[in-house]
């Protein structure tokens, strides 16, 4: 009896030790990411702090680091977001609704589904090549803001579709059934029962996809976004530049002062991203309460 109890106790102690060890491991796993990220942020803030001045927002690119700013890049990035957001929202959520609610469950649908999931993982430069062929050359939009925004829309569409589908799928079946039971047709059910409850999830997906787009460089360089732009785009067909391109250009310059500018640019980019993610959280909380 006593022996058995001892064995039990040992076993339990052993499990506790294992539990504790795994606990430590997971804490370590979490902190590696956080610590590295913090170190990066602090490093960039230190490098860029001296350049975070009005000039950065008011000046156009210059060969002199002391006079250079990223006005055209900031405005270019934001214009692109403003064009891209509604486009990718309508197309992406529309496709997700079709695939989840309307599409027959057959081989074709599964094929489309597989394609979309694959596209979500395709390297962004491939979208750049696609954009160059379709928008810049075939549709003759040239190296314009519109061509850039359309290319980026293509890039984020699969992500938005997949995340919206997840959100729609997570709506309990009982909601749909209740709606049908009250005599609502498909669209009424989708519009009034499914989407409101899926909306926070959809919105989070959209904003995260936008955050990805704002940090992309490769596809835009591919379609011919510019590096030196000393004016703000007046219409959709004007050429443009975006923040990551400007930052990369500064990093690659030989003079060390440009690297400080690049750090300041990164801080601005991060601030925009943070704002967008913050908006995503706010919106999600708002709609979570309502439904």
């Amino acid at each position: 009896m006593g022996v058995l109890q001892d064995a039990n106790r040992k076993q339990i102690a052993g499990r506790r030790r294992l539990d504790f060890a795994l606990h430590l491991l997971f804490v370590a796993a979490t902190s590696v990411g956080v610590v590295v990220l913090m170190a990066l942020l602090v490093d960039i803030l230190i490098d860029g702090a001296s350049r975070l001045q009005p000039d950065l927002f008011n000046q156009y690119p210059s060969r002199r680091a002391s006079q250079a700013g990223m006005k055209s890049a900031i405005v270019g990035s934001l214009y692109m977001l403003v064009i891209m957001a509604p486009l990718s929202f309508v197309l992406g959520v529309g496709a997700a609704i079709y695939l989840e609610e309307y599409a027959p469950k057959n081989r074709l649908t599964r094929l489309i589904q597989l394609n979309i999931s694959t596209l979500a993982g395709v390297p962004s430069i491939v979208y750049g090549i696609l954009g160059l062929a379709i928008f810049v050359r075939a549709m003759q939009l040239d190296r314009s803001l519109l061509a850039g925004a359309l290319t980026m829309t293509l890039l984020v569409l699969p992500i938005i579709i997949v995340s919206s589908q997840e959100a729609i799928r997570a709506v309990p079946r009982s909601r749909r059934e209740a709606s049908f039971a009250l005599g609502a047709n498909k669209w009424q059910t989708v519009a009034r029962a499914v989407l409101p409850s899926a909306f926070p999830g959809i919105l989070t997906g959209v904003i995260l996809a936008m955050s990805r787009a704002i940090g992309e460089t490769a596809p835009l360089v591919m379609i011919g976004a510019m590096t030196y732009v000393a004016f703000l785009p007046n219409d959709l067909l004007d050429s443009f530049t975006v923040m990551p391109i400007q930052i990369y250009n500064w990093i690659a310059r030989p003079q060390a002062e440009f690297r400080e500018l690049a750090a300041a640019g990164i801080v601005v980019l991060l601030a925009v991203l943070l704002l967008m993610n913050f908006a995503a959280i706010l919106l999600r909380n708002k709609y979570n309460k309502k439904v």
Partner: peptide, 8 residues
């Protein structure tokens, strides 16, 4: 981000 600019 761009105080005076870009209001066009």
């Amino acid at each position: 981000a761009c105080g005076n600019g870009g209001s066009g």
